[in-house]
Protein backbone atom coordinates (compact mmCIF):
# COMPACT_ATOMS: atom_id res chain seq x y z
CA UNK A 1 0.00 0.00 0.00
CA UNK A 2 1.29 3.48 -0.86
CA UNK A 3 1.59 6.05 1.91
CA UNK A 4 -1.30 8.07 0.46
CA UNK A 5 -3.30 4.86 0.33
CA UNK A 6 -2.47 4.18 3.96
CA UNK A 7 -3.68 7.64 4.98
CA UNK A 8 -6.94 7.07 3.14
CA UNK A 9 -7.23 3.67 4.77
CA UNK A 10 -6.70 5.29 8.15
CA UNK A 11 -9.50 7.78 7.56
CA UNK A 12 -11.80 5.02 6.39
CA UNK A 13 -10.76 2.84 9.30
CA UNK A 14 -11.80 5.54 11.73
CA UNK A 15 -15.08 6.09 9.95
CA UNK A 16 -16.12 2.46 9.79
CA UNK A 17 -16.02 -0.21 12.44
CA UNK A 18 -15.03 -2.95 12.79
CA UNK A 19 -11.72 -2.59 10.98
CA UNK A 20 -10.57 -5.20 8.48
CA UNK A 21 -8.26 -7.66 10.23
CA UNK A 22 -4.79 -6.71 8.88
CA UNK A 23 -5.46 -2.97 9.12
CA UNK A 24 -6.94 -3.23 12.60
CA UNK A 25 -3.78 -4.96 13.70
CA UNK A 26 -1.73 -1.96 12.58
CA UNK A 27 -3.88 0.86 13.97
CA UNK A 28 -2.73 2.33 17.26
CA UNK A 29 -5.36 3.91 19.50
CA UNK A 30 -4.31 6.32 22.20
CA UNK A 31 -5.94 8.79 24.56
CA UNK A 32 -4.57 11.65 26.58
CA UNK A 33 -5.76 13.74 29.49
CA UNK A 34 -4.22 17.00 30.59
CA UNK A 35 -4.66 20.72 31.09
CA UNK A 36 -4.65 23.52 28.53
CA UNK A 37 -3.75 27.20 28.74
CA UNK A 38 -5.26 29.49 26.10
CA UNK A 39 -3.94 32.99 25.41
CA UNK A 40 -6.49 35.87 25.62
CA UNK A 41 -9.34 35.62 23.11
CA UNK A 42 -9.82 39.38 23.00
CA UNK A 43 -8.17 42.52 24.32
CA UNK A 44 -10.06 45.76 24.51
CA UNK A 45 -10.15 49.05 26.33
CA UNK A 46 -13.34 50.74 27.51
CA UNK A 47 -12.30 53.31 30.14
CA UNK A 48 -9.59 50.82 31.18
CA UNK A 49 -7.93 47.90 29.40
CA UNK A 50 -9.05 44.32 29.94
CA UNK A 51 -8.73 40.80 28.53
CA UNK A 52 -11.23 38.10 27.68
CA UNK A 53 -9.73 34.77 28.67
CA UNK A 54 -10.69 31.12 28.76
CA UNK A 55 -9.81 29.53 32.09
CA UNK A 56 -7.29 26.73 32.38
CA UNK A 57 -9.20 23.82 30.87
CA UNK A 58 -9.12 20.05 31.03
CA UNK A 59 -8.08 18.71 27.63
CA UNK A 60 -8.96 15.26 26.34
CA UNK A 61 -7.59 13.81 23.12
CA UNK A 62 -8.25 10.59 21.25
CA UNK A 63 -5.93 9.57 18.44
CA UNK A 64 -5.80 6.77 15.91
CA UNK A 65 -2.44 6.16 14.29
CA UNK A 66 -1.39 4.13 11.29
CA UNK A 67 2.31 3.36 10.82
CA UNK A 68 3.84 4.62 7.60
CA UNK A 69 7.43 3.96 6.54
CA UNK A 70 9.45 3.80 9.81
CA UNK A 71 9.85 5.95 11.85
CA UNK A 72 6.74 7.82 10.68
CA UNK A 73 3.11 7.44 11.78
CA UNK A 74 0.03 9.21 10.51
CA UNK A 75 -2.59 10.07 13.10
CA UNK A 76 -6.13 11.36 13.15
CA UNK A 77 -6.84 13.23 16.39
CA UNK A 78 -9.92 14.54 18.13
CA UNK A 79 -9.28 17.06 20.89
CA UNK A 80 -11.83 18.54 23.29
CA UNK A 81 -11.36 21.11 26.03
CA UNK A 82 -13.91 23.00 28.05
CA UNK A 83 -13.80 25.93 30.46
CA UNK A 84 -15.40 29.22 31.42
CA UNK A 85 -14.71 32.44 29.53
CA UNK A 86 -14.59 35.70 31.46
CA UNK A 87 -13.56 39.33 31.26
CA UNK A 88 -10.53 40.05 33.43
CA UNK A 89 -10.03 43.67 34.52
CA UNK A 90 -6.69 45.02 35.71
CA UNK A 91 -8.21 45.64 39.18
CA UNK A 92 -8.98 41.93 39.56
CA UNK A 93 -12.66 42.11 38.58
CA UNK A 94 -13.74 38.94 36.80
CA UNK A 95 -17.03 38.96 34.87
CA UNK A 96 -18.16 35.57 33.52
CA UNK A 97 -19.35 35.62 29.90
CA UNK A 98 -20.12 32.02 28.97
CA UNK A 99 -18.84 28.45 29.11
CA UNK A 100 -16.84 27.37 26.11
CA UNK A 101 -16.02 24.01 24.59
CA UNK A 102 -13.47 23.76 21.78
CA UNK A 103 -13.44 20.78 19.48
CA UNK A 104 -10.48 20.21 17.19
CA UNK A 105 -10.06 17.53 14.54
CA UNK A 106 -6.54 17.18 13.23
CA UNK A 107 -4.29 15.17 10.94
CA UNK A 108 -0.86 14.65 12.46
CA UNK A 109 2.44 13.23 11.29
CA UNK A 110 4.44 11.64 14.12
CA UNK A 111 8.08 10.62 14.13
CA UNK A 112 9.73 8.50 16.79
CA UNK A 113 13.09 9.78 17.96
CA UNK A 114 15.90 8.35 20.10
CA UNK A 115 15.64 8.20 23.89
CA UNK A 116 11.86 7.70 23.97
CA UNK A 117 10.88 10.96 22.31
CA UNK A 118 8.18 11.38 19.67
CA UNK A 119 7.59 14.63 17.81
CA UNK A 120 4.37 15.50 16.04
CA UNK A 121 3.22 18.20 13.63
CA UNK A 122 -0.16 18.61 12.06
CA UNK A 123 -3.05 20.71 10.88
CA UNK A 124 -6.78 20.60 11.35
CA UNK A 125 -10.01 22.41 11.96
CA UNK A 126 -11.17 23.86 15.26
CA UNK A 127 -14.70 24.82 16.28
CA UNK A 128 -15.75 26.97 19.23
CA UNK A 129 -18.94 25.80 20.93
CA UNK A 130 -20.16 28.35 23.52
CA UNK A 131 -22.87 27.17 25.90
CA UNK A 132 -24.98 30.22 25.10
CA UNK A 133 -25.04 33.03 22.56
CA UNK A 134 -23.84 35.83 24.78
CA UNK A 135 -21.04 38.36 24.98
CA UNK A 136 -18.40 37.90 22.30
CA UNK A 137 -20.42 34.87 21.11
CA UNK A 138 -23.76 36.72 21.02
CA UNK A 139 -23.90 36.49 17.22
CA UNK A 140 -22.51 32.97 17.07
CA UNK A 141 -19.04 31.46 17.13
CA UNK A 142 -18.12 31.70 13.46
CA UNK A 143 -16.97 28.97 11.12
CA UNK A 144 -14.48 26.13 11.58
CA UNK A 145 -11.01 27.66 12.01
CA UNK A 146 -7.83 26.10 10.59
CA UNK A 147 -5.03 25.48 13.06
CA UNK A 148 -1.47 24.19 13.11
CA UNK A 149 0.03 22.16 15.92
CA UNK A 150 3.29 20.70 17.13
CA UNK A 151 3.93 18.38 20.06
CA UNK A 152 6.68 16.48 21.77
CA UNK A 153 6.12 13.38 23.89
CA UNK A 154 8.46 11.38 26.05
CA UNK A 155 8.05 7.82 27.22
CA UNK A 156 10.02 7.00 30.39
CA UNK A 157 12.52 4.15 29.94
CA UNK A 158 10.62 1.94 32.34
CA UNK A 159 9.08 -1.35 31.14
CA UNK A 160 5.85 -0.80 33.10
CA UNK A 161 5.43 2.66 31.59
CA UNK A 162 5.96 1.76 27.94
CA UNK A 163 2.35 2.66 27.06
CA UNK A 164 2.54 6.01 28.86
CA UNK A 165 4.00 9.26 27.59
CA UNK A 166 4.21 12.77 28.97
CA UNK A 167 3.37 15.23 26.23
CA UNK A 168 3.51 18.97 25.63
CA UNK A 169 1.38 20.30 22.79
CA UNK A 170 1.19 23.73 21.19
CA UNK A 171 -1.29 24.92 18.62
CA UNK A 172 -2.07 28.18 16.93
CA UNK A 173 -5.15 29.57 15.19
CA UNK A 174 -6.84 32.89 14.47
CA UNK A 175 -9.94 34.04 16.33
CA UNK A 176 -12.63 36.59 15.56
CA UNK A 177 -16.32 36.17 16.27
CA UNK A 178 -19.14 37.83 14.32
CA UNK A 179 -19.92 39.97 17.43
CA UNK A 180 -16.33 41.23 17.66
CA UNK A 181 -16.41 42.04 13.94
CA UNK A 182 -19.70 43.89 14.37
CA UNK A 183 -18.17 45.82 17.28
CA UNK A 184 -15.42 47.12 15.02
CA UNK A 185 -12.56 44.65 15.30
CA UNK A 186 -11.18 44.28 11.82
CA UNK A 187 -8.44 41.69 12.30
CA UNK A 188 -8.53 38.27 13.84
CA UNK A 189 -6.34 37.55 16.82
CA UNK A 190 -3.65 34.87 17.08
CA UNK A 191 -4.59 32.39 19.79
CA UNK A 192 -1.85 30.27 21.30
CA UNK A 193 -2.81 27.14 23.19
CA UNK A 194 -0.45 25.03 25.26
CA UNK A 195 -1.45 21.68 26.73
CA UNK A 196 0.46 19.35 28.99
CA UNK A 197 -0.95 15.86 29.22
CA UNK A 198 -0.35 12.20 29.81
CA UNK A 199 -0.92 9.97 26.79
CA UNK A 200 -1.81 6.31 27.10
CA UNK A 201 -1.67 3.86 24.22
CA UNK A 202 -4.83 1.82 24.47
CA UNK A 203 -4.16 -0.70 21.72
CA UNK A 204 -1.57 -1.45 19.10
CA UNK A 205 2.16 -0.97 19.42
CA UNK A 206 3.06 1.73 21.97
Amino acid sequence: MTQRGRLLALALALATAPLPGPLAAQVTLSASLGARYTSPLARDSIVTAFDVRAALAPAVTAAAGLPLRAPWTAELTLDISSSGVARHERDGTVAPITHLTTLALGVVLARTMPRGFTVRAGVGGLKYLPSERSGIFRDGAGAVIPFGQVAVAWTPPVPLARRLAVEARYDLHRFLTPALRNEGFTNSRAIHRIAVDVRYTLSGAP
Binding site: D44, V123, F185
Partner: peptide, 16 residues
Amino acid sequence: AALAVTAACSDVSAPP
Protein backbone atom coordinates in the same frame (compact mmCIF):
# COMPACT_ATOMS: atom_id res chain seq x y z
CA ALA B 1 1.03 22.75 5.89
CA ALA B 2 1.57 23.72 9.51
CA LEU B 3 3.40 26.89 8.55
CA ALA B 4 0.71 27.83 6.04
CA VAL B 5 -1.68 28.08 8.98
CA THR B 6 0.69 29.86 11.33
CA ALA B 7 2.41 32.26 8.92
CA ALA B 8 -0.68 34.45 8.51
CA CYS B 9 -1.10 34.87 12.24
CA SER B 10 0.22 38.35 12.84
CA ASP B 11 -1.68 39.94 15.71
CA VAL B 12 -2.51 43.50 14.76
CA SER B 13 -6.11 43.72 15.98
CA ALA B 14 -6.63 47.16 17.53
CA PRO B 15 -9.58 47.82 19.87
CA PRO B 16 -12.46 49.67 18.19
